[in-house]
Design a binder for these strands. Sequence first.
DNA 1: ATTTTGGGCGATAGTACTATCGGCGAACCG
DNA 2: CGGTTCGCCGATAGTACTATCGCCCAAAAT
Lengths: 209, 209
Amino acid sequence: MPDVTMSRREAKDLTRRRLLASALRILDTEGEAGLSTGNVCRNAGIAQSTFYVHFRNMQDLLQALGEEAGRRTGPVVREARRRSSAAPHSAERLREAFRVPLEMMCDHPEFFRLSVRARYDRSSPLGDAARRRAAATRAQLVEDLVAAGLPGGTDAQRARLEMVADGVYGLTETMATGHLEGRYPDLEECIDVLVAFFAGVRAQLLSAG
Amino acid sequence: MPDVTMSRREAKDLTRRRLLASALRILDTEGEAGLSTGNVCRNAGIAQSTFYVHFRNMQDLLQALGEEAGRRTGPVVREARRRSSAAPHSAERLREAFRVPLEMMCDHPEFFRLSVRARYDRSSPLGDAARRRAAATRAQLVEDLVAAGLPGGTDAQRARLEMVADGVYGLTETMATGHLEGRYPDLEECIDVLVAFFAGVRAQLLSAG
DNA sequence: ATTTTGGGCGATAGTACTATCGGCGAACCG
DNA sequence: CGGTTCGCCGATAGTACTATCGCCCAAAAT
């Protein structure tokens, strides 16, 4: 018989993770409307009042969920872009740089949809967090675009790159959504379209800069 | 002294419009979370129970709000695209075709944000309505792209155009959001970026088709 | 071994919201 | 003018959720 005893810290952490997982499951099945402390706890097999042992309120939980997601995805995306910049004439490396974030959105549809929704909610504190994460993602993409050889010397060029990064990210989200809704079953076609859009703006930046 | 008497129909319609306007105002100031029958009615100076004289429930009201918006914006957008297709080499007409929808989103930020949020909520019936409207918008944009000379003869070309239309709309939303958040104060720059992105995908479609 | 700590639990007060009901009075219809 | 209709109202039952409290008991500390 295995040892079922746990240290307090382990036990508490397990409960916390069960709550986070339960919230994620509910987001995926019932949507944000199903998110209540009672529902999350019921799904986790935990008393509703125990919720407050781990989180101050529901938004606290959601913020933790978002931070965890960002912590996981960030490094992987950057690595793909780094490889693409290192091989600037490899079409496949470029596709990879688009493929990685696209697949991450599709692998975690519930996170993905929630964070988009949050960004478009001006009044939600969760929205603030989501917008901060989006801004960080944008800034990093701008760095990666500069590393890939796009002009970012002047403030104006920098501002333009910011808009382009925003657009690339928005396009990726659009394609991910289409794929998740079953309209674009082939992810490679989604990448085709992303690459084609990007080619236009890239050419314009290189010729103007 | 003006005639303050109204026919029943006029009076009822006025109340209904006051409720819709109140909901819109609340969306803009408090966000979706502030949308309750009581709050909407209080803001409209109407008894909470009267809400149900006009709408079956809150989603019914929101759907009515969305339909009204679609009814107003659709024709104007189409007209701008028609003009652009009629003058296929006019850069200004092309810009106009991007400018009109962009400005509409920015003129009605609360509608805009709500419908984006709704689209990303799988479980909300309001989301269904928003997705249907988005699909209709997409289909119309595909038609307009064909009218503008992009290849849409085969099913595969049609599918590709669908993705491009999706992308263009997503890009427009992204730029509108950036503008509304104050990050891109100059709408003309937003249009620059839209045009640049579009040029890439357009070239790719014309060369491959 | 004894005390302390703290995670989890049930109970519950408090709040907010939905939706319905009966009544009032003004518009409507004969 | 008399009866009917119906939009609006106040009141209220019912529901769902949040957040707190005191208790229990096992882990941790002494």
